[in-house]
Amino acid sequence: MARVPAAPAPLTRGQVMARVKARDTAPEREVRRLLRAEGLVGYRLDRRDLPGRPDVAFIGRRRAIFVHGCFWHGHDCPRGARAPKANADYWAAKIARNRARDAAALAALEAMGWRTLVVWECALRDPGLQARLKTFVRAT
């Protein structure tokens, strides 16, 4: 009689959270693809020396692009407005902290003379995003 392999154990919440990437996510890669398609190269990724660690930074032009996941950063779109049912107080506080941290980082960069752009995950479906990125980076 052949043995049937046991089903893998379900992942714990900690294991699920450990798999959430902080950088080089699919939305970030899509934004970089759009930038390259416009010939906008020479950017740096995940600059730890800048407030908020921008996902894409054009150092010479002093432009910083942040690519935010709608859920994690509390966007007001349907995906971002979805509140978890389990441990709701924890998640509400965490997303509020993320929003406060984002606002502080944007203010700090602007105080340093940088221009910033936040690209929301849901905006990746917008056909005008590529032109918006080009205008933002090339503006004087």
Results as ranks from 00 to 15, higher is better:
A123F: 04
H68W: 06
G128W: 07
A104L: 07
A2V: 14
L11K: 15
P8S: 02
A104G: 05
N87W: 12
A104M: 04
D49Q: 11
A2S: 15
A64Q: 07
R125I: 04
L129N: 03
G80V: 08
P127M: 08
A6S: 15
R47N: 03
A105W: 04
R97G: 04
A81N: 05
E121F: 11
R63D: 05
L34T: 03
P8W: 09
A6Y: 13
V137M: 07
D76C: 02
A92M: 09
E38W: 10
N98F: 04
L129G: 03
R3H: 15
R53A: 09
T25W: 05
K94T: 07
A93D: 12
A7Q: 13
P27W: 06
A64T: 08
T25I: 10
A131T: 13
R138E: 14
L133K: 01
W72E: 11
G69A: 06
P27T: 11
R115E: 14
R36F: 09
R101K: 15
R44Q: 07
V4F: 10
A88N: 00
R101P: 06
A2M: 14
E110Q: 10
Q130T: 14
G69E: 04
F71I: 14
R3P: 02
K21Y: 01
P51H: 01
E30T: 14
V20N: 02
A2P: 15
A123C: 08
P84G: 07
A83I: 15
A131R: 14
W114K: 04
A108Y: 07
R32C: 12
A104I: 01
F136K: 05
V20F: 09
D89M: 03
W120P: 02
P51T: 06
P8I: 05
M17W: 11
L50R: 11
V16D: 00
T116E: 10
A123I: 05
A103E: 11
V67N: 02
I95R: 13
V119W: 03
D89Y: 01
Y43E: 08
D24E: 14
G42T: 09
Q15M: 11
G42K: 12
Q15G: 11
G60P: 00
V56G: 01
A7R: 15
R82Q: 14
E121V: 12
T12I: 13
K94W: 07
K94H: 08
E28V: 01
A2D: 14
A81D: 02
K94F: 02
M17E: 05
V20L: 15
R36C: 00
L106H: 06
V20A: 13
L133N: 01
